[in-house]
Amino acid sequence: MHKPGRERLAAVNKRDGLESSKPGELHTQLAQKLGIDILGRKWLPGDILPSEVDIANTYAISRPAVREAIRTLAAKGMVEPRRRRGTCVTERAKWNMLDPDVLSWMFATKPDETLVKNLFEMRLILEPAAARLAAQRRTDAHLEAMSNALKIMGRETLLTEVGLQADIDFHAALMAAAGNEQLGALNASIGATVALSNRYKIAHDILGRDPVPAHMAVYEAILNRDAEEAHWCMQYLVRLAVKDLLHMDAIEDLRTETIIP
């Protein structure tokens, strides 16, 4: 039976980047598209988004799906309803910049240098400190998890999903070894940053050097309970990662001569 309405819906959704065989998934795709547009400054803080009806018509999806997408963005602090005005884009300071979805949307297009610097400054603050604690508090189980991740990274490389997951697992095991629940709560954000930056580098052929030796140095320092060495090696690892990502000779405010030669 011919269904022109359904075909039109599929055609419009595909045109605008919303395509799913399951209608319930469309609100997730719409939230992603709107989130990327907000991050890309199509709408600025203080701007009012198109009405629910207009968005539904533009993307040929149901109004309940639009409402669910808006709720998703509101939960991440990116928009808020304004009585008698509509849905307003909030100030960036209110956005949950560590939300894994928001991080993913940031890397959907070429990330700007400020974003990259901010994320890696966060990693430079958190991960070396976590490595220092891990050297003091790690258990055999933590060491085994890190060692297994390193073996997989070396065998599979970061060009495979298995290798990419092993990199995430290494950092997760290290954060767990720090023995701090509050630091551990940031593991999803750290893991998302690691995964997204790696995937971006692979997609743009800027993967850079073999990451295993730098990770191995961190592991060996933790194995030997050398807290200061673990701190330094993790700092070195993060600095190499940001240097490769930006594909530049130096990043001045993230650089010292002894860390990045």
Rank of each mutant, 00 (worst) to 15 (best):
Q165K: 12
A166T: 09
K151A: 13
G154L: 02
L183F: 15
V162N: 11
D169E: 13
D169R: 03
V162D: 05
N180I: 12
T160K: 03
A178K: 02
D167H: 08
Q165G: 14
G184C: 03
L150G: 11
G154E: 15
M175C: 11
A166K: 12
L150F: 07
Q182T: 14
L183P: 01
A172V: 12
F170L: 12
E156V: 00
R155D: 10
D169H: 02
A172W: 02
A166D: 05
V162L: 14
D167S: 11
F170M: 04
T157C: 12
K151L: 15
K151S: 11
A176V: 05
I152S: 06
L159D: 05
F170A: 07
Q182E: 06
L164W: 05
E161A: 15
E181R: 03
R155P: 01
F170H: 11
Q165W: 08
A176K: 03
A177G: 08
T160G: 09
E161G: 04
H171S: 10
G154F: 05
G154D: 14
T160S: 15
G179N: 11
D169Y: 05
A177V: 13
I168P: 00
L150D: 08
V162P: 01
E156Y: 06
H171T: 07
K151Q: 15
L183A: 08
A173M: 11
Q182C: 02
L164E: 15
L164D: 04
V162M: 13
R155E: 14
G184D: 05
A173W: 01
E156S: 13
T160A: 03
L164C: 05
A178P: 10
R155A: 14
Q165N: 15
E181Q: 10
G184H: 05
T160W: 06
A172L: 09
D169Q: 06
G179L: 01
K151C: 13
F170D: 13
A173L: 09
L150I: 14
A177K: 12
F170T: 04
G163P: 04
I152W: 02
M153D: 00
F170W: 08
V162I: 15
G163D: 05
K151V: 14
E161K: 12
A172Q: 10
T157V: 07
L174N: 00
G163L: 10
D167N: 13
L150A: 04
A176N: 09
G163R: 09
E156T: 03
T157N: 08
L164K: 13
A173I: 11
M153T: 03
A177M: 08
F170E: 08
A172I: 04
I168Q: 02
M153K: 12
G184I: 03
L174F: 00
L158P: 02
M153H: 03
L159T: 06
A176S: 14
L158V: 06
T157W: 08
A173S: 09
A172K: 11
A178N: 01
A178H: 04
L158K: 01
G154T: 03
T160C: 04
L183Q: 02
L164Q: 13
M153Q: 14
G179F: 01
L158C: 03
T157D: 06
G179Q: 01
G179H: 00
A173Y: 04
G184T: 10
Q182P: 00
M175A: 11
T160Y: 01
G163M: 10
M175L: 15
G163H: 07
L159N: 12
L174Q: 00
A173E: 05
E181Y: 06
Q182I: 15
A178Y: 00
E156C: 06
L158R: 14
